[in-house]
Nucleic acid binder design. Structure first.
Lengths: 143, 143
DNA sequence: ATGATATTGCAAATAACTTGCAAAGACATA
DNA sequence: TATGTCTTTGCAAGTTATTTGCAATATCAT
């Protein structure tokens, strides 16, 4: 979770203003567990505050992604999700039934074999995604 | 690549008909390397044949996904991609610049550590995705 | 060849997301 | 604290990928 000061820094350094809307959006992302869709963010934001427009949310999410504060995930359950970049590298587990998205702190990418394969095809990796889809414990025990 | 007979089997067994359009769509997917967007499939299909409608393509891709013949990928470069499920398990390498998608035959999922972590949170995995984004050799050497 | 049923093409509808523009807000400077 | 500049917002309208309703057509078992 990004604290107010570092956020203020990042924005001001690049000439962006610290608006109420931006504060609320980041606050919502920081105080919720796991990534959220633009729709969810819209609801959460408008619970706290009031009347923040959808286009404002999209514009700010895009800006925050560009600044590296937020990461956009294209999950296979249909919607784009957004999360604070945060400090620790992680990946995701997604329930196919309820749609819940959880972080997992494993990363398969450090494996030597895999890096070798990339060198073979002369590919320079910058990011990677590892997503596990399935059934969460709650949904499994439900029926 | 799925041969005509097994395809015919799969469709007929479930009461679906083997239309010209379906044959062409699968043929295109089978004879192209890597996954393609609906748009690309539309172009490829309409080069070979003529006048297959976009809704027909979408409807059939969805059906083929449901039947397990085709897999849909939600890549982070914006568009959904489709590929034949095929026989061998694989993952993808995606160039951020030219958008090219290549298969890689590595899979990080068999690692014991990871399966353990899933058991910890009582998650039952069914599918998983591993995508590496970066710069392909062609794009890297271009500038 | 025929009929039952699945499928197609077309056009219109969705839904997520983006954009133009005038009004409002942030903030450096006076 | 007031002012001016420049960013940002809200609104409404526009895009774009994808879906859907429906009448016409194609497939396939008989």
């Amino acid at each position: 979770m990004i604290n107010k000061f570092s956020l203020e820094e990042i924005l001001k350094n690049k000439g962006y203003k610290l608006t109420q809307q931006r504060k609320v959006i980041i606050d919502v992302l920081g105080n919720s567990n796991g990534p959220h869709t633009a729709n969810e963010i819209y609801s959460l934001v408008n619970d706290k505050n009031s009347g923040i427009n959808f286009s404002t949310i999209y514009r700010n999410l895009e800006l925050l992604v560009r600044l590296g504060i937020v990461r956009k995930l294209n999950l296979s359950n249909g919607y784009n999700h957004f999360e604070l970049t945060g400090e620790k590298h992680h990946h995701h587990v997604i329930c196919n039934k309820c749609g819940e998205v959880k972080e997992i702190d494993i990363c398969p990418f450090m494996d030597m074999d895999e890096r070798d394969k990339l060198e073979e095809i002369d590919f320079q990796p910058t990011e990677h995604k590892f997503e596990i889809y399935g059934l969460c414990s709650r949904c499994r025990n439900k029926e």
